[in-house]
Computed example of a mutant assay.
Amino acid sequence: MWSLWSLLLWEALLPIAVIGAQVLSKVGDSVLLAAEQPPGFQVREAIWRSLWPSEELLATSFRGSLETLYHSCFLGRVQLHSNLSLELGPLQARDSGNFSILMVDTSGRTWTQTLQLKVYDAVPRPTVQVFIAVTGDAPALNTCRVFLSCWAPNTSDITYSWRREGMMDSAAGPHSLFTDQRVLSLSLGLRDKDVAYSCIVSNPVSWDLATVTPWESCHHEAGKKKKNDHTDEVAPETENPLV
Rank of each mutant, 00 (worst) to 15 (best):
L33W: 10
N240W: 09
K193Y: 13
D194H: 10
D29I: 01
F62E: 02
A222F: 14
I132H: 14
G89Y: 05
D121E: 15
K193M: 13
I19T: 09
I132D: 05
S3N: 02
Q92D: 10
C218W: 10
W2H: 08
S54A: 10
D208A: 11
I47N: 01
P15G: 07
S149N: 07
R94W: 04
Y120N: 05
Y160P: 04
S170C: 03
L186H: 12
W111Q: 04
S50T: 12
E11V: 00
L177M: 04
T213V: 12
D229H: 12
R163W: 01
P15F: 10
C73A: 12
S100L: 12
N228A: 09
S202I: 00
A46G: 14
V119I: 11
N142M: 01
E237A: 14
V119H: 02
L184S: 06
A133M: 11
D194Q: 13
R164S: 12
P126R: 05
V201M: 01
S202K: 09
H230T: 15
S107I: 09
R49V: 11
L209I: 00
R49S: 12
S30E: 15
L4P: 01
I132P: 03
W10P: 00
G97H: 09
T106N: 07
S217F: 08
E233Q: 14
S170I: 09
L88V: 05
I19N: 08
P39T: 01
C73S: 14
D180Y: 06
F62V: 01
C144W: 06
S206V: 07
P153M: 08
I158L: 15
L141D: 15
L242T: 13
G166V: 06
L84I: 07
I158Q: 08
I16D: 11
Q79D: 05
E11Q: 14
S206T: 12
V31K: 03
L148S: 11
W215Q: 06
T213H: 02
K226M: 10
A171Q: 12
L184C: 05
L57D: 06
S107T: 15
L9S: 07
G40Y: 02
L190F: 12
A152P: 00
S6E: 11
M1Y: 00
A133H: 13
P15T: 08
L190E: 12
L8P: 00
A93G: 08
V212N: 09
N98E: 11
W151E: 11
G20A: 03
K225G: 01
N83Q: 04
P153G: 06
S6Q: 11
P90H: 07
C218D: 05
I101E: 07
W151A: 10
A172P: 13
S54T: 13
T127Y: 10
V134G: 01
T213L: 06
N154T: 02
L190S: 15
A59Q: 09
S61K: 05
E87V: 13
R63A: 13
A138C: 07
Y197H: 09
P174N: 05
V43K: 06
R44L: 06
S85W: 10
S3D: 02
A210I: 05
D232Q: 12
T211R: 14
R49Q: 15
Q79P: 00
A222D: 12
D229L: 08
A93I: 15
Q181P: 00
L69V: 00
D157I: 01
S198A: 15
H81Q: 15
A235F: 11
K227Y: 14
S50Y: 00
G28S: 03
K224S: 06
I16P: 00
